[in-house]
């Protein structure tokens, strides 16, 4: 029992990165790894849901637009229902603004340097 608790405490944080642009995803992933955090990257809602089936995430960074007509909305809903904190990372505040405000999550405008983006989600997990 004690051993299990210690093991959990030692386990690195696990963050879900939903981003369809590989360069941005990689940048976030490397910045997370700098902080000793493990990242799993999904390029679509379906991929994200598949990862959510298999892993217990501590938090998530969601790109809002995931290709033509697709948004991260469903993933955001799933995360919300599981109580997993997330931030929205988007270059499109105008068009998606209204829909995203309903999600009531922190919005980080693109472009923002990766270390700043991940600081926001790590702060939320700490809190």
């Amino acid at each position: 029992m004690t051993q299990l608790a210690i093991q959990c405490a030692d386990q690195p944080l696990l963050i879900l990165v939903v981003e369809d642009e590989p360069m941005i995803a990689l940048d976030l992933q490397l910045a997370l790894e700098d902080e000793g955090v493990t990242a799993q990257v999904a390029a679509s809602c379906d991929e994200a849901h598949a990862l959510l089936e298999r892993h217990a995430f501590d938090g998530a960074i969601l790109d809002v637009n995931l290709g033509p007509g697709a948004t991260c909305r469903k993933v955001a809903g799933t995360l919300r229902s599981r109580g997993i904190p997330f931030v929205l990372h988007t270059g499109d505040l105008d068009r998606q603004g209204e829909a995203m405000r309903e999600l009531n999550a922190m919005i980080i405008p693109k472009p923002t340097p990766a270390p700043q983006v991940i600081r926001h989600i790590l702060e939320q997990i700490d809190a």
Partner: peptide, 15 residues
């Protein structure tokens, strides 16, 4: 929107 995304991608490439 595309331009902001592009700046973000450039930032990723540089870092």
């Amino acid at each position: 929107h595309r331009m902001k995304n592009m700046f973000s991608v450039i930032g990723g490439i540089v870092s």
